[in-house]
Computed example of a mutant assay.
Amino acid sequence: MKSSPEMLKVYKRVRSRTVHVVPDEIVVEILVRLPVKALTRFKSVSKAWCAIISDPFFIRLHLQQQSAKNQEQAPSFLIIPHTLYKAIDSESEFESVYPMLHCDGLFVLPTDTKVYVFNPATHDVLKLRNDQKDEWFYPTVGLGLDLLTSKYKVARFFYRSLNFKKRAYSMGVEIFTIGGDGVDSCWSTVEDCPFPIFPGVVVYFKGSLYLRIWYELVERPPQEFLRFNLENETFSLMCYPELLQPKGKHLDLIELCGELCVAQCLAEQIDIWMLRSDDGHEWVKQYVIRLPDAWNFEVFSVMPNDVKIIRWGSCLYHYDDAQKDTREMVRLDRLRYMNSKVDSFDFVGQEIFLFNILPYVESLIPVTKKRHHSLAK
């Protein structure tokens, strides 16, 4: 990855024939603070601007700027409603609806037959066909950044065979590298999972994917999470916090405030443990959320001095840590969604299956190969 001075040096060479109006350093400082929509338009201003906006270093710098802005101010969220319409004959791709994943402005949407990776800010979409058949009906897909190569990888975990009575299974993993060369333009298989994976959301954190082990399929399951390193594409185990009794309890791996956490749902409270060391041996109880009753809340986002939590369904709640009070913030199914191109619209009266609502930071990260000017030239 080029340093900032190196990027400026190449930028100066690319725009050497243009008129000097604003110092180059100022141009970069201004561009990196602009939203994606504006930067996409500004690519057509000149070859020099197109080169710098398309450069991988600038894209990472812009992402860091947007992430910092989200932490300092009110964060952004992406709301995706899933409606239930009449089934289309011979349609097999969207028979079921599955949760989505977010990483650095990119989203993954698994369907019954494909995996979609898209950037809503740039309208860039990548469609991946599921090459391997999955015997379990619920897809398990992860997305994250390989810190060594700075490329994003999609990991798909699938069951070749599954027998609950005999506790027998065969589980495989396939990887797709986004933006790779010709060798990486299709799914590649890696080592099999050492333990069966509980279907559902996969959490990305600092170069690895974190998954829950499916205890019902293991006679003597380890009291640990499964970690998949995206750099070397290998598995390892990470311990639970000591005080947790995971068997029979509802546990969720989540990322809060840039840290990996475990949320344990008890009778009338949620305990949130935060990881303090990368080896998984130091966990600290960071939050205790007292609930009015045994509702099935899931922790959603942490703000300064308070915690936002979302209940399964269409209600978003605010938890006041000082008052130990939970109150309804908004009903997602009663919101009116504004769009200047298609006018406003709402979902009142429509059949809503669920709302995906995810923390969101917009980015310029591409998911498909596009011809553009590179600063490396």
Rank of each mutant, 00 (worst) to 15 (best):
K9F: 12
V10F: 10
V22E: 08
I26H: 06
L31I: 02
L31F: 13
K43H: 08
K43M: 05
V45P: 00
W49T: 15
C50G: 04
A51M: 04
D55S: 09
F57V: 14
F57W: 11
H62M: 15
H62T: 09
Q66I: 06
S67E: 14
K69C: 14
K86D: 07
A87V: 04
P99T: 01
C103T: 13
P110R: 01
P110C: 13
D112T: 11
T113Y: 02
T113I: 11
R129Y: 15
W136I: 11
G144D: 06
L145E: 08
L148Q: 13
Y152F: 11
R156A: 03
R156E: 01
S161T: 12
Y169T: 00
T177S: 04
G179L: 05
D181C: 07
D184V: 04
T189S: 06
G200Y: 08
K206E: 11
S208A: 10
S208P: 02
L211T: 13
P221T: 07
Q223E: 03
R227Y: 01
E233C: 09
T234Q: 14
C257G: 08
G258V: 05
V262A: 10
I270Y: 01
I272L: 01
D279C: 07
W283P: 00
R290S: 12
A294D: 14
N296M: 02
F297Y: 14
N305Q: 13
D306F: 09
D321P: 01
D333W: 08
D343E: 07
F345M: 13
L354R: 03
N356P: 02
N356Y: 09
I357F: 05
P359Y: 05
P359M: 13
S363Q: 03
I365C: 04
K370V: 12
R371V: 10
